[in-house]
């Protein structure tokens, strides 16, 4: 097993493509997007089905990469989150096939 870094980004759906481009530009080889159902933050509660435009929907983007690539990606994601609603966190993980990342 090899040590890697897992990036978990919760971000508004409308910024998902921007986040994807940031990750790809930093050398991340893949990510998975999961829809978020509901949440609460900074005094505001939200649910997925409130807004017909779906512009308030949030998604969770999960990506695994080397710690170096993660460091680069976090710098860019910090800039993205300066404009868009979202939260990013990282954690160490172990992967079976490191060559995939």
């Amino acid at each position: 097993m090899a040590e890697m870094t897992r990036i978990e980004l919760i971000i508004e759906r409308m910024a998902m493509k921007r986040a994807g481009r940031v990750l790809q530009a930093c050398g991340v080889t893949g990510y998975t997007v999961i829809p978020a159902l509901a949440g609460y933050g900074r005094g505001t509660q939200w649910t997925r089905d409130t807004d017909i435009s779906a512009s308030q929907d949030m998604v969770v983007m999960i990506s695994i990469c080397s710690p170096e690539v993660a460091g680069k990606a976090l710098d860019q994601l910090k800039s993205l989150l300066g404009s868009h609603i979202g939260v990013v966190s990282t954690s160490p993980v172990e992967v079976l096939r490191p060559e995939r990342f």
């Binding site: 409308m14 512009s55 308030q56």
Partner: peptide, 21 residues
């Protein structure tokens, strides 16, 4: 509440959707 909120999230992401929506 369909076309404009989506456009605003891209063009003016600093604007609060909880206000305009």
């Amino acid at each position: 509440y369909i076309a404009v909120p989506a456009a605003m999230r891209l063009a003016l992401p600093e604007a609060k959707p909880s206000i305009y929506l």
